[in-house]
């Protein structure tokens, strides 16, 4: 399965990645190769094989509903690129 330049442009937009013309070309080639390689799996006969929803054969792992201490606000906000005394500050997103 070949990946087109348009595919890469769409995925880059969804991932909010800005790619140069050269990068777009390179990605189109690389991703095509990766997807073509994975396509090998299509040769396997999966008739009657139950689809796998998860990589590990474990289920029902729960935590009890108990409150545990949260981070102090100062610590929570410590790494924020922008902040005030209460919260994170981000560029305006109104109408976004």
């Amino acid at each position: 399965m070949a990946i087109t330049r348009a595919d890469v442009e769409k995925v880059a937009l969804l991932a909010r990645l800005q790619l140069t013309d050269g990068e777009l070309k390179m990605m189109t080639t690389d991703l095509s190769q990766i997807v073509t390689y994975v396509d090998l799996l299509a040769e396997v006969d999966t008739e009657g094989v139950e689809p796998m929803a998860h990589a590990v054969e474990v289920s029902n792992v729960f935590a009890e509903d108990e409150v545990r201490p949260s981070l102090p606000r100062e610590q929570a906000l410590a790494n924020a690129p922008g902040r005030n005394e209460r919260g994170y500050l981000v560029p305006p997103v109104l109408g976004g």
């Binding site: 108990e66 545990r68 929570a76 209460r86």
Partner: peptide, 23 residues
């Protein structure tokens, strides 16, 4: 619930901003 869906932070409404968070 008392706590959040995937961690132990309280799920209560009305606390001071950013006082009920964890990694």
């Amino acid at each position: 619930t008392q706590s959040k869906l995937f961690c132990g932070c309280p799920a209560q409404f009305g606390a001071e901003p950013n006082t009920q968070t964890c990694p």
